Computed example of a mutant assay.
Amino acid sequence: MARYNGPVCRLCRREGEKLFLKGERCYTDKCAMERRPYAPGDHGQGRRRKLSEFGVQLREKQKVKRIYGVLESQFRKYFEKAEHQPSVTGEKFLQILESRLDNVVYRLGFATSRNEARQLVRHGHIQVNDRRVDIPSYQVEVGDKIEVKDSSKDMKRMEEITEFNEVQEVPSWLESDLNQLEGKMLGEPVREDIDLPIQEQLIVEFYSR
Rank of each mutant, 00 (worst) to 15 (best):
V167C: 00
S176G: 03
G187W: 04
N165Q: 12
E160C: 02
L181E: 05
V167Q: 12
K184N: 14
T162V: 15
E175W: 12
G187P: 00
M185G: 08
L186E: 09
E188A: 10
V170N: 05
E169S: 13
G187L: 03
N179E: 14
E163I: 11
N165R: 15
S176N: 04
G187R: 15
D177Q: 01
W173Q: 09
R191G: 00
G183W: 06
D177E: 01
L178C: 04
P171G: 06
F164G: 00
E169F: 01
L186Y: 11
E169C: 02
V190T: 14
G183C: 02
P189G: 09
P189Q: 04
F164E: 08
S172Q: 13
L181S: 05
D177M: 01
Q180H: 14
E166W: 08
V190R: 13
E160R: 08
W173D: 05
P171W: 00
E160Y: 12
F164Y: 12
E160Q: 11
L178T: 08
F164D: 04
N179I: 11
G183D: 02
L178H: 06
W173M: 00
M185S: 03
W173H: 15
V190Y: 03
N179D: 13
T162C: 12
K184Q: 13
E182W: 06
R191V: 14
P189C: 06
W173E: 08
G187S: 15
P189E: 09
E163H: 11
I161G: 14
E182R: 15
Q168V: 14
E175I: 00
V190M: 09
D177N: 15
E169K: 15
E163N: 07
E175R: 11
V190G: 03
T162G: 01
V170A: 02
V167S: 10
L178P: 05
Q168S: 10
R191W: 11
S172W: 01
V170T: 14
T162Y: 03
L174P: 00
Q168H: 13
I161K: 12
E166I: 08
T162Q: 11
E175L: 12
V167T: 13
